[in-house]
């Protein structure tokens, strides 16, 4: 058997659930539907994790809540000989533009504003699309889910920037940079939205598509 049989997209896809089986999402082996735990890798098995949607919404909600103070409070507190200034996430990016570092300002805006907000919207959209009719195909939504999973971690950039600056720029009274309270709420927001995306069971996207065909 060489396995090169051309199985075109015209053929109906058979899922593990259709066949009375349950698949391990960690190591991809399948088991009889009533099995509780994968005997190969030990992961808990569940054909469709229905409780996952409650977890998705819960993590997403705290993620959004943490994101609000993250934008209102200062991220960095800079003190030099003559002045002391505070900057928020967006304020810091605007400062960078004033200094001519437009490229870096764009990185910060993308990583700290566009990605987190895009992620909130995308996860909520994916969750709602399971029960409501949406225009985007299952393929499109699956791609969206992959992007969310891949890109969400990169929001941590600004937290690391604050960490580096705070440890590096400690020159007694001449110049010192310290972290502001937004650093912690922003980091929490990123972590919670990562957990929201990880809780989502992408198999549910495809189930909804199948149901609408039959």
């Amino acid at each position: 058997m060489d396995g090169m049989e051309s199985a075109g997209s015209t053929r109906q896809i058979v899922t593990a659930r259709d066949s009375g089986l349950v698949a391990c999402t960690r190591c991809s082996l399948v088991w009889p539907a009533d099995k509780q735990r994968c005997a190969r890798c030990g992961s808990a098995l569940s054909s469709r994790d229905m409780a996952s949607m409650a977890r998705v919404w819960a993590w997403l909600a705290i993620g959004v809540i943490c994101y609000i103070p993250a934008n209102l409070f200062p991220m960095l507190i800079t003190s030099t000989l003559f002045s002391k200034s505070q900057s928020t996430i967006v304020g810091g990016a605007i400062d960078l533009i004033h200094h001519g570092a437009v490229g870096v300002a764009i990185i910060i805006i993308v990583a700290s504003v566009l990605i987190p907000i895009g992620k909130f919207v995308a996860v909520a959209y994916l969750a709602l699309s399971l029960n409501h009719h949406v225009k985007m195909s299952a393929h499109g939504r699956h791609k969206l889910y992959e992007y969310v999973e891949f890109i969400g971690r990169w929001s941590m950039i600004d937290v690391f920037v604050v960490a580096i600056l705070s440890s590096l720029v400690q020159l007694s009274s001449v110049a010192a940079i310290n972290p502001g309270p937004a650093a912690i709420t922003f980091a929490l927001s990123v972590i919670f939205t990562m957990l929201a995306a990880q809780s989502f069971d992408p198999r549910l996207i495809w189930d909804a598509e199948e149901d609408s065909h039959t």
């Binding site: 698949a23 082996l29 699956h142």
Partner: peptide
């Protein structure tokens, strides 16, 4: 012998 796609459950 059987595996399923962890992302969409295709067998």
């Amino acid at each position: 012998e059987l595996i399923a796609c962890p992302q969409c459950d295709a067998l």
